[in-house]
Design a protein around this nucleic acid. Structure first.
Length: 301
DNA sequence: GGGCAGGTGTAAT
DNA sequence: ATTACACCTGCC
């Protein structure tokens, strides 16, 4: 599909990006792939390619402000997963009874192609952490070490984090993860690890390289392989996925994360990552409902 | 206030 | 290969 540039006297540049059904922007941005986008109502704001971007999903596509060139819109399509064949993917996954049920609530999620560097650091920080604090940490990191972009800040470069003091990193609420982040930043900055050439590596090779980094275990590696490098066979197993898969596929019997990953990859193949996203979304959604019910049930003092 | 939170590193079996 | 434990620290 192509992008149309819409003449507009007020805003600098507005693009209409056609998108096929059932793509859903809000769900894609809120299913745990990214931490630095904000959704207020139907308007999503974030930073892409060092520029502030505003996106609204409208009939038949996305209305985007902040991009300047056609080439940028092409990369933005890839970033947001706008050309993923979602109808086909969800149709395939719906052969599985559990996913058929989950997709009713989560249809329209697309896997993104994020910047590997930002994705890697984000998920190192996500370990043994909670989502609000992860978002705070990344925000502080950007405010302290990034460059001003619109109302916010760009994600810090590897060089910038490589030269940061551990004290200043801890001040961004990184805690015990601070040495991991700086060590990885240094390996990337001095080219011991080349995240760009990993694009050409096989799933197994890229995984091995990522696992060698401090603070990167199987879960974090799989997140980066899935959300940044586009390896659809990756199946990150976090506590939510573990609970959901054990409950829905194993009668509630405990399984090792490794076994769950092998199970999912055998069952869903290169769509394992999409299966993970739908299962994760449904798991989190049922938690949100429980919390809402609990909040209603308990009278405030 | 206290346990919990999108795991990982390390040591020991 | 598997198991047990510590870990920064702000949230709910």
């Amino acid at each position: 599909m192509t992008s149309l540039r819409v003449k507009d006297e007020v805003s600098p540049a507005r693009w209409f990006l056609p998108v096929a059904s059932p793509y859903n922007l809000t769900r894609t941005l809120s299913c745990g792939q990214v931490f630095r986008w904000h959704s207020a109502g139907s308007i999503a704001t974030g930073i892409f390619a060092g520029r502030p971007v505003r996106v609204v999903q409208v009939a038949g596509g996305l209305s985007v402000e902040g991009l300047t060139e056609r080439e940028e819109t092409r990369q933005f399509r890839r970033y947001l997963g706008l050309d993923e064949p979602l109808a086909t993917i969800e149709g395939q996954l719906a052969h599985d009874a559990v996913l058929r049920g989950a997709i009713k609530r989560s249809s329209g999620i697309a896997l993104m192609r994020q910047d590997p560097w930002e994705c890697l650091i984000s998920f190192i920080i996500s370990a043994f952490n909670n989502i609000p604090k992860i978002e705070q940490s990344l925000g502080r990191l950007a405010a302290r070490f990034g460059n001003p972009v619109g109302e916010g800040w760009s994600f810090p470069t590897p060089e910038r984090l490589a030269s940061a003091s551990l004290r200043s990193l801890r001040a961004c609420w990184l805690g015990y993860r601070a040495p991991y982040v700086r060590s990885v930043a240094r390996q990337v900055a001095n080219r011991e690890v080349d995240l760009a050439t990993l694009e050409d590596a096989s799933f197994a090779e890229a995984r091995k390289t990522l696992l060698a980094l401090p603070g990167v275990g199987e879960k974090v590696a799989d997140c980066v392989l899935l959300f940044a490098y586009g390896h659809g066979v990756a199946f990150p197993v976090d506590v939510w996925i573990q609970r959901v898969v054990e409950r829905r596929y194993f009668g509630g019997r405990p399984q090792t994360p490794r076994h769950l990953r092998a199970f999912a990859q055998a069952r869903f193949g290169s769509l394992a990552g999409y299966a993970q996203q739908h299962l994760y979304f449904s798991g989190r959604a049922s938690r949100s409902r429980r919390l809402a019910e609990t909040a209603l049930a308990v009278p405030r003092p």
